[in-house]
Design a protein around this nucleic acid. Structure first.
Length: 197
DNA sequence: GACAAGATTCGCT
DNA sequence: GCGAATCTTGTCG
């Protein structure tokens, strides 16, 4: 078992550094009485201030982004393309709309449940790789929008790993113009990563 | 109240 | 490599 990350950890002010630090942490979900978990292998940072790719940029406050203004340590889950749930971790203090998108994990517990949720039979590298696949494997839905990461259903653990991290440009946000070029995506070296593009 | 677009994925050409 | 699937959210009338 690792050390559970608390709100103080998520309330650090540098969301980019935090996104990098999350690589190698363990993401645990205890949903439907099934415990599934995996090590985070890819993240992306989104900053509320000065980042056009963020849903809450320029202090834009809507029903969907409201939770991003909460103090760090809660989940921001939303539906994309009407099909995929995307899981983010809200960071920084109140009114700083920063968040980190978890793009991929390497499953390490509850793999059978993940296979079941994804309707697959054999374990494969892409089981929980990709923001949409990841939430499906872990059973995360919009039901967990605004859910605290200090609870027992959904949380993160530091298991003492210090992986080699590589920074890349973000993906799938071409509409953000020049901000799409920021090197705010972080991947775990020598792990199979997510990007298809 | 209607319409366009999206932090994606999968299947087919 | 390209396009469909699919529905919530935000913007406009």
């Amino acid at each position: 078992m690792g050390l559970k990350l608390d709100a103080a950890y998520f309330q650090q002010s540098d969301v980019v550094a935090l996104a990098k630090d999350l690589i190698g942490k363990r993401l645990v979900s205890q949903i439907g009485n099934i415990r599934t978990s995996g090590l985070i292998t890819e993240t992306e940072a989104y900053r509320g201030w000065g980042d056009k790719a963020c849903h809450a940029h320029l202090q834009k406050k809507t029903q969907r982004t409201a939770v991003m203004y909460q103090p760090g340590g809660v989940a921001y889950v939303y539906l994309c393309y009407g099909i995929h749930h995307l899981f983010n971790i809200v960071t920084n203090v109140k009114d700083q709309a920063d968040a980190i998108l978890i793009r991929a994990i390497q499953p390490d517990a509850g793999i059978a449940a993940m296979l079941n949720r994804r309707a697959k039979k054999k374990a494969e590298p892409g089981l929980a790789a990709g923001p949409g696949n990841l939430t499906k494997a872990l059973g995360i839905t919009t039901k967990y929008y605004g859910h605290s990461l200090e609870g027992s259903l959904l949380f993160l653990e530091d298991i003492g790993l210090k992986p080699d991290v590589e920074s890349r440009t973000r993906i799938g946000i071409d509409y953000a113009g020049e901000d799409a070029l920021l090197p705010w995506r972080f991947v775990w070296k020598e792990k199979p990563c997510v990007s298809k593009k």
